[in-house]
Simulated scan of single mutants.
Amino acid sequence: MILEHANQPHHHGNLPTADKQIELRNPTCGDVLELAVKLDDSGKIADVAFSGTGCTISQASASMMTDEVIGKTPAQVAEMVEAFSEMITAKTDKDYEKLLGDAVVLEGVAQFPARIKCATLAWKAIYQALQEGGHEHE
């Protein structure tokens, strides 16, 4: 599933109607992620797109994240981001699948500390775009 998302990423491209945009970089391995978010009138995520370059893990994680956040409120996304971070950094027996969907397959990244930043890049980007405002699209 990770290779499928990395090779044929969902929601990859540009989103000209975005309300929020952000670019994050992972200086450790050179991943660059540009994320654009469109909110609906109720404040939920109506659409999201990402572009940039990165390793298989960062691209797959971004693809999975975009699938899971559409239709969610910023508060729900914040809860998902916290759960994702906890899933790949803490040793817990929680069942993350209900909250994170397919992204739960990235749980194994915890065994590879050098790849944790790759997996979390997209999740940090969506959190920052929604919570801190990102950059307003003009």
Rank of each mutant, 00 (worst) to 15 (best):
G13E: 12
A18P: 04
S51C: 10
L39D: 08
K38W: 08
T17K: 11
G13F: 11
K20M: 07
S42W: 06
G43R: 02
T56R: 10
S61H: 02
V37T: 05
S42F: 07
V48R: 03
T53C: 10
P27T: 03
P9V: 07
Q8T: 10
A18T: 06
T56G: 13
N14E: 14
H10E: 09
Q59C: 07
A46F: 05
Q21A: 13
F50Y: 05
G52I: 08
N26S: 00
G13T: 12
A46C: 07
G54F: 02
V37L: 13
A49H: 12
V37S: 02
A60C: 08
H11P: 09
A46M: 10
P16R: 11
H10D: 09
V48W: 02
A18H: 04
D41A: 15
K20T: 05
R25H: 06
A6H: 11
P16E: 11
P27D: 01
P16Q: 14
G30T: 05
I57R: 06
D41Q: 12
P9Y: 06
P16F: 10
G13M: 12
D19H: 13
G13A: 09
E23Q: 10
T56A: 15
A18N: 06
L39H: 08
T53F: 08
Q59W: 02
A36Y: 07
T56Q: 13
G43K: 03
E34N: 13
P27N: 00
A18W: 01
T56C: 11
I22E: 11
R25M: 01
C55K: 10
P9D: 06
D41T: 13
V37E: 06
Q21P: 00
V48P: 01
T28R: 01
G52P: 04
N14S: 14
S58F: 13
P9I: 07
D19R: 07
F50R: 06
V37G: 07
Q21Y: 04
C29V: 10
L39E: 13
I45V: 14
D47M: 04
V37W: 03
R25L: 01
L39V: 11
D41R: 05
G43A: 04
N7W: 02
K20R: 15
D47E: 14
G30Y: 01
N7S: 12
S42E: 15
D40M: 02
N26V: 02
K20V: 03
L33S: 04
L39T: 11
A6E: 10
C55E: 14
H10G: 00
T17N: 14
K38F: 11
F50P: 06
D40R: 02
L35P: 00
L33N: 05
P16H: 10
V32W: 00
I45G: 00
T53D: 15
A36N: 13
Q8V: 09
A49R: 15
V37I: 15
C55Y: 12
K44Y: 04
I57V: 14
C55A: 13
H10C: 03
P16D: 13
S51F: 03
V48F: 05
L24T: 04
G52F: 08
E34S: 15
V48A: 10
I22V: 09
S61W: 05
P16L: 10
D40F: 02
